[in-house]
Design a protein around this nucleic acid. Structure first.
Lengths: 200, 200
DNA sequence: GTCTATACGTCGATAGAC
DNA sequence: GTCTATCGACGTATAGAC
């Protein structure tokens, strides 16, 4: 016994999910969703192909390898996240900037929950091929937080404080999405801000 | 090309690593370390057997299946973590209890970094066999934090605040171990406490 | 540019000797 | 209780038709 078979199929991911989407886009979307839920190795290229509504060959034609597909998924997500974080703090300083950063990270987590799960799942691993790609997420996103911390609290350690802020927001956000999705976004935002900015 | 082969072997894990350790103990130790670094599916039973210094058959004799082995790894870690957290707050109240919780979680992360990575990597996944086991970690450990939050800040949301505190401590701790291991533990503790308990 | 069919390797799990 | 040898299933990647 000890049935260890992984429930194989996967619901369909029709081309019409997003209006007029290229093959590459469909594949990337399906890959993020599946990998976020089951992990990289547990997700077969067959599964991704089925979910994206394309043939396996098309994935290899467009991305070359399973690893390359995953790296493409990551850099796409990183660019989006970092740009959003940076944009949220222009012309802002002090606690207002911190507040904006926390709020924007929560917005991003809500908008792209699969990517958020995926980042959390992979970012502290050291023995993987795409280690380099994923550390860029960490470095770039953390850097935005660290810059703001430096300007807001000169006496605090920038990188460790950034990690604490990032961790508080991300984990609270995922707790919300994964286990308390019925809660309004404002509750989560309030709880995080009360924790890291109690003076406001 | 696109060499996607996973570097297979793994350093030895001699029986003498811990003085007088049973077969089961060796297997569990090797499994946590490997799975924390490469993930569950990317870690083969062969790898675990080699690293533990036993034959693959012995793993199946002792645990029955790969999944069962992983669940055993998890519950062992959970019990240890929850017990340590609960023990750290007896006879403590208010900010002192929060401080003790943060400190103890950092101690546990430092003492068992592999298990910490593993928890972070798996806790927000929903499509896995051991989902039930790992959610126990989350629920039990979060509950300790939530209880203290309830007693300390009656006006804050217990579960979301607990998630924020847990996340801040865990992510800062892992940032430290994975990317800034040279820093003294006191720095990390100070940074987290300054973030979540600035008034003290 | 996308599909089908298939080669080749690897992995989880079992059987049976010791 | 631990080992070695082996089976069957599945997964990545490629070749070639359309």
């Amino acid at each position: 016994m000890t049935t260890s078979a992984i429930p194989p199929p996967a619901p369909a991911y029709p081309d019409t999910a997003q209006p007029r989407r290229g093959t590459r886009g469909c594949i990337v979307d399906a890959a993020v969703a599946l990998i976020a839920d089951r992990g990289f190795s547990a997700t077969s290229v067959d599964d991704i192909a089925t979910a994206a509504g394309v043939a396996k060959g098309s994935i290899y034609y467009n991305f070359g390898s399973k690893t390359a597909l995953f790296e493409a998924v990551i850099v796409a997500g990183v660019d989006r996240l970092t740009a959003a974080l940076r944009a949220s703090v222009v012309d802002l300083e002090g606690p207002a900037a911190i507040e904006a950063l926390v709020t924007e990270l929560l917005v991003q987590v809500q908008a792209h929950p699969d990517f958020a799960k995926l980042v959390v799942a992979e970012v502290f691993r050291t023995g993987r091929d795409w280690q380099h790609s994923i550390q860029q997420v960490r470095e770039e996103s953390m850097a935005v937080f660290a810059d703001v911390v430096r300007a807001t609290w000169p006496d605090r350690d920038p990188s460790l404080t950034a990690a604490a802020l990032f961790g508080a927001t991300l984990v609270a956000g995922l707790e919300w999405l994964a286990f308390q999705p019925h809660r309004p976004a404002a509750d989560v935002r309030a709880a995080v801000l009360a924790t890291v900015l109690p003076s406001t």
